[in-house]
Design a protein around this nucleic acid. Structure first.
Ligand code: ZN
Ligand code: ZN
Ligand code: ZN
Ligand code: ZN
Lengths: 144, 144
DNA sequence: CTGATAGTTGATACTTACTATCAATAACTT
DNA sequence: AAGTTATTGATAGTAAGTATCAACTATCAG
C-alpha cells in the first residue's frame, strides 16, 4: 500500500539530478546507510567507512537529508540521530532504549497543521514531530 | 483563559520543593530567563551573567527544564533553543528568521497520540512537536 | 581521448553545546 | 555556631559538526 523508495540507483540518480557529482565516497555513504535500518549517528558511518573522510561523511549526510532520502531526528535530549527515509512525508517513533525507528504517516497531524494556519500569525514553513516509545522488545527485556 | 505561571517566587519555590538549594547563582539564572521572552541559547545567559560560571548556567537550565518552567526546543537544523514556559502542556511555533517563540495548546495532537497508542507497538513515553514559521514582522521586513 | 573547468575531498583546526572532575565554597540543619 | 552536604567554577574533555584550502577528480567541450 505504502510505496517504498530509495533503492540505491534511485538515490544516486536523485543526486545526479540535483547537479551533483557521483563520487566513490558518495556511493559508499549511500551504500552504508542503505545497509542500516534503525537509527545511527554520523560517527557510526564515519567509523564504518575508513576510506572516507569525516568531513565528507557529514557533507554527504547533509545532502541526503536535503534530498529526502535520509531523516535527521533527535532523541529527547537533542542528540541527533539519522534514519533512512522510506515513506513520502512521515513522522517517527523512536525507542529511547534501543534506538529502533519506525516511520508512520498520519493525516491527523497534517489536518492539525492546516487548522493551525488560521490560528497562527505568520506563515508555516515546516514542522517536526517525534513520538518517543519503549518498543516491545525493550519492554520485555527490562525487569521493572 | 489560559493561566500563566512562573513568576519568579513560584519558580524558586518549585526548586525548593524539589529539595534543591536556593543559591544566588540559581536566582540569577531564573531572573535572567524571566527577563527574556523569545528564544535564547545557554550561551546568551552565560554571557549575560558574568558572575555565574558556565557550568552552573548549563546545570541550572537543565534543572529548570526538568521543573517545566523552561522549554528546550530545536531549530530545524537541530540547534538547541530555550524558551520560558508559561502554559501547562503545550507545543511551540518558532520563527526561523528571528527566533520568536509562541506557545500553543491544542487537543488535536493529544488526541492523535491517544489514537497512536492503538497503532504503535510499545509504550509511548513522550513526544516532541515544533511548528516552524516566518512571523508577521519577518514576513513584512523581507523584500522577497 | 585529451585538457580544461569546476565540483569534491580530507587533514587540520575551529566552533558550539555541553559534561566530568574535584577542590573550594556556601546553604540548610540542629 | 558548627557540621554536613549540596553546589560552584576552573579546567579539561566529548559530541557533533563546520571552515579552510591545497590537492584531486568527475564531467564536459573539443
Ligand atoms: Zn524518516
Ligand atoms: Zn527498543
Ligand atoms: Zn514552552
Ligand atoms: Zn520572525
Amino acid at each position: 500500500m505504502i510505496s517504498t523508495r530509495t533503492s540505491q540507483p534511485d538515490v544516486i540518480a536523485a543526486l545526479e539530478d540535483a547537479g551533483l557529482r557521483i563520487t566513490g565516497q558518495r556511493r559508499q555513504v549511500v551504500a552504508a546507510i542503505e545497509r542500516r535500518d534503525g537509527g545511527f549517528s554520523a560517527e557510526d558511518i564515519a567509523g564504518e567507512l575508513e576510506g572516507v573522510g569525516r568531513a565528507t561523511v557529514y557533507r554527504t549526510l547533509k545532502l541526503l537529508v536535503k534530498a529526502d532520502v535520509l531523516c535527521k531526528l533527535a532523541l529527547p535530549d537533542g542528540t541527533p540521530m539519522y534514519s533512512p527515509s522510506r515513506l513520502e512525508h512521515h513522522h517517527h517513533s523512536v525507542c529511547t532504549s534501543c534506538g529502533a525507528v519506525e516511520e508512520f504517516r498520519d493525516t491527523t497531524v497534517e489536518r492539525f497543521l492546516r487548522s493551525l494556519t488560521r490560528e497562527i500569525e505568520g506563515e508555516i514553513v515546516g514542522h517536526r514531530m517525534e513520538v518517543f516509545i519503549r518498543c516491545l522488545s525493550c519492554l520485555g527485556s527490562s525487569s521493572s
